[in-house]
Write a protein that binds this DNA or RNA. Structure first.
Lengths: 341, 341
DNA sequence: TTGTAGGCGTTATCAG
DNA sequence: CTGATAACGCCTACAA
């Protein structure tokens, strides 16, 4: 494999000059520049990135930590992040934590070993005190995840408010016995959503029955199980808040194979506005997040940090979300038909 | 940032010995080993991976080229690839080509610059002659994509056979006017599928009307447009082969908002057995690929190549697929009801 | 069992 | 404008 030295020799010039040409620096006469370019071409020379990284002390690579790519929300997120990073000249390493604390820490090691210049955490299940030390090795930006913490910028929506709005909507549609279904990782986001859910109940003088809380539902299959659980044990339930369109879809799917009607007997809300939520019959009410905008901002903030080397202020961007109302919660009409007072 | 030199000094030993400890090599007495470990701990020493890469001439990183992560098939693929790679000690760089020839080549540059030890191509739209030169810089393995080519191992299903089976199934269900809907990138896979489709028609003495070919359908929205196009211009169509569950879902969704019945008026088959295809009403007949197995084999083959440095033989693994019949093609019952002879 | 010394391929510094 | 030289941090013959 040809090195810069080979090119220099062939062109009859020094390594320095070749380096200047490679890096588009000024102060090289056109004819020498051409000689070097020719030499590079005949040798098939390509700069070795390991050497370059060592010397320049930067890798032009970032790590994105997330639970799993197959969750459509994170799929969409990493698609946007990669695209934006690529536009800024950065590579992206995918780091799936699978909700495992140790894996999360293992991947953060990439920052310590200087394999990446920065980290985006869209997965954050360790305590902050275990994460904080890594900040000494390079910048970390939180995307989607957030929590009270110093030293990191955060980009996210207001999950508490989103959950509040979903829940208030269910109540407005006439639901009185609400179930609360999540994936059960006790992240800050989870606590925010729960708080929003409870606030909506309290404001409407409704009680929350702790037996109606499910904290093990992650995907479509789990959604089906949730449905079974609810109708078998708690037939009085008339509304379900879920933290995921997939779980909501599972519930809708299971209901379609039973006698129960959605939303008549049971109203359901999802989260994230995945394609699935639109296509289900009935279509699922959900919360839309501006994923692309969030991704773009995340890269922007991280790139800035990687350049400024810690002189800049931490920032927080809360993006607007949107409640998208669809058939899975449209009870007003149905209720007024079946029980016209 | 502490270097190996610092550790050596603090422990009162040489860089060599420290290096031995770092790399778990023998010939270090236990007490010295301990001294070194202590020194590393007090200094917070972590080996610099750029230096290590330069010296060892390997990066422990691979690049995965694919069109886009949000296509669930590729999402699932990269999830499995990353997991398997991680298990083997490799990082994965996501490279989304967005079906752009230039981007595909740009990402292959990672191989030339030694930023990665190997490449997995699940996207392959350039002519092979443009790809082949990169083989000189490192191993490439084709996953999902395949074509007659030397120097690369391939892992895939038999797309021709899969398309043949889907089509034969449609015909068996009574379809006579079939439409052929794809994304339009003229990959080898596409030509294989087309060949399988045509073969099934020929075997059943059916003609293919070229006007019933659509080559611009990639996602759910496109599927809806396809439906409009077909019923408005070719109302005699009674079956559709699509290369994607998403497109098929779009067709089913559009049909549900029209007077047409699926599968009665129009039978539809998808591809990839995504969750979507099960959840649609009616559920969509599709082709299942053993993605996880293919991913595991791909990593296995690539890792082997990266170790053997080109001495081993190219291999080809054709995995079994499975036609999963669901309601979107279940016409027999419907037809016999409406027209009992 | 341990240490010395050279080099991996680049780029930054400084002198010309 | 150009070039010599010294790092960047690590590994690995080879010597002791």
């Amino acid at each position: 494999m040809a090195t810069i030295e080979d090119v220099a020799k062939l062109a009859g010039l020094s390594r320095t000059t070749v380096s200047r040409v490679i890096n588009d620096q000024p102060y090289v006469t056109d004819d020498k520049k051409q000689r070097i370019i020719d030499a590079m071409k005949t040798l098939g020379y390509v700069p070795n990135s390991s050497a370059r990284r060592l010397r320049r002390r930067c890798t032009e690579t970032i790590a994105v930590l997330l639970p799993r790519v197959t969750n459509p929300f994170f799929g969409k997120l990493i698609e946007s992040l990669e695209q934006e990073a690529s536009r800024n000249g950065y590579q992206v390493i995918v780091c799936q934590t699978h909700d495992n604390k140790q894996k999360e820490l293992d991947y953060l090691q990439l920052l310590k070993t200087k394999q990446v210049d920065g980290v985006i955490m869209a997965s954050l299940i360790n305590d902050w005190q275990d994460i904080e030390p890594y900040l000494a090795s390079g910048p970390i930006v939180l995307c989607n995840e957030y929590r009270p913490a110093n030293g990191v910028s955060m980009i996210h929506i207001d999950h508490k408010k989103a959950a509040y709005e979903s829940t208030a909507h269910l109540i407005h549609e006439g639901c009185e016995q609400l179930a609360y279904v999540t994936g059960g990782h006790d992240t800050f986001i989870a606590s925010e959503r729960k708080a929003g859910f409870l606030e909506a109940l309290a404001e409407n003088d409704l009680q929350f029955d702790p037996k109606l809380e499910v904290n093990w539902a992650l995907d479509v299959n789990d959604g089906q199980k949730v449905f079974q659980y609810l109708i078998e044990n708690h037939s009085h339930v008339d509304g379900v808040f879920t933290g995921s369109d997939e779980v909501a879809a599972g519930i809708v799917y299971a209901a379609s194979q039973s006698k129960l009607n959605i939303p008549g007997d049971l109203a359901v809300v999802g989260f994230d506005n995945q394609m699935l939520s639109l296509l289900m019959v009935p279509a699922i009410t959900t919360i839309e997040q501006p994923v692309e905008d969030m991704a773009a901002k995340t890269i922007e903030v991280l790139v800035e940090k990687m350049n400024d080397k810690g002189t800049n202020q931490e920032r927080r961007f809360v993006y607007p979300h949107q409640l998208i109302v669809r058939s899975s919660t449209n009870r007003e009409q149905i209720l007024s038909q079946s029980a016209p007072l």
